[in-house]
């Protein structure tokens, strides 16, 4: 049986009257790379900080490596790598000083060679101060600092934000380096769905603080479908197809966003309702995510209808 390294139970967080995370129930098994995706303000950073015990939940609880997040001991924290949003490091330190500082907290498990190799791979001078590094270079230092102690669980809050394509690729390769170490688990939030698609094997979708999906990436890719149907006359008023998420209609066409139905079921529904032809549109993960989390006002703007 696969061990669960991260578990939340009804995790809820209010900032004043604003609900940031709403009864998040989540289980992340050991050894997976989990992309934590959501729009701006969806509650990703808050959820991550709650999991790490940096914020206190209004209700619910979370556990990391079997330990309650509210009482993470130094020994447990030693097993968890964390890359902060925006790669906020001590600006006055040089890379070498920062390594020395960080190493003090991982006396037995710090892999100096790995850190040095990564810094060399990223072509960063060790004597350069953090304040003189670009955001991309800071991201690379941040990743090296998080990976050098060989953590069992790596949590990264939007690590590729603001990085150009080349540095993002380098960053992801660095991440894969960790993943190749057996049994390591990665949870990373991101806006860039291409990154999630490239490295993740699991996806967690959060929208307005509510968990919308927690499944394997393959499952998500197979489940979210867009179908366009053409009718000789006006499309049926009542769209009663299974798994309907959104429905957009024009004079003689219907565009449906569906969750889960088999292609045969779609074909059968199209035939039953007199559609002249239908087409299952091929979507990439980004399109799927946008359709899946499309807000109500967005739907109205484009004359979408809810089921």
């Amino acid at each position: 049986m696969t061990e669960t390294v991260l578990e939340t139970e009804g995790l809820t967080k209010y900032y004043g009257s604003t609900l940031a995370v709403d009864h998040l129930v989540l289980k992340i098994p050991q050894g997976c790379i989990c992309g934590f995706v959501g729009r701006n303000g969806a509650g990703k950073t808050t959820a991550i900080k709650l999991m790490l015990g940096l914020l206190r939940p209004t209700a619910g609880s979370s556990r990391l490596l079997g330990c309650d997040s509210a009482a993470l001991t130094p020994a447990i924290r030693q097993r968890i790598g964390y890359v902060t949003e925006g790669h906020r490091l001590f600006r006055w330190m040089s890379i070498a000083e920062l390594e020395k500082f960080q190493r003090s907290f991982f006396p037995k498990q710090w892999d100096h060679k790995f850190f040095a190799d990564m810094i060399e791979y990223f072509n960063l001078p060790k004597k350069r101060k953090i304040k003189h590094l670009s955001i991309g270079e800071r991201a690379q230092v941040s990743l090296a600092l998080a990976l050098a102690p060989n953590p069992e669980l790596l949590i990264m809050d939007d690590p590729t934000l603001g990085l150009d394509a080349a540095i993002r690729r380098q960053f992801l390769e660095g991440m894969i380096e960790l993943i190749m170490r057996q049994g390591r688990t990665v949870l990373f939030s991101s806006h860039i769905l291409g990154d999630v698609e490239r490295v993740s094997d699991r996806i967690v979708v959060i929208d307005k603080g509510v968990l919308r999906a927690n499944c394997s990436l393959e499952e998500f890719r197979t489940a979210v479908k867009k179908v366009t149907l053409s009718f000789p006359d006006s499309p049926p008023a009542d769209v009663d197809i299974e798994g309907l998420l959104h429905c957009r209609r024009s004079e003689k066409e219907l565009e449906l966003i569906l969750i889960g139905p088999a292609d045969e079921h779609i074909a059968e529904w199209a035939q039953r309702n007199g559609a002249e032809k239908y087409h299952i549109v091929k979507m990439n993960l980004e399109d799927q995510f946008i359709e899946y989390t499309a807000p109500p006002n967005h739907r109205r703007l484009f004359q979408w209808e809810e089921k």
């Binding site: 900080k49 940096l54 001991t73 030693q78 968890i80 906020r88 600006r91 907290f105 991982f106």
Partner: peptide, 14 residues
């Protein structure tokens, strides 16, 4: 101001 609290707090020290 520099948002370095999380980097300082999340480490193997209580």
């Amino acid at each position: 101001f520099t948002r370095t609290w999380p980097f300082l707090i999340h480490r193997s020290a209580n």
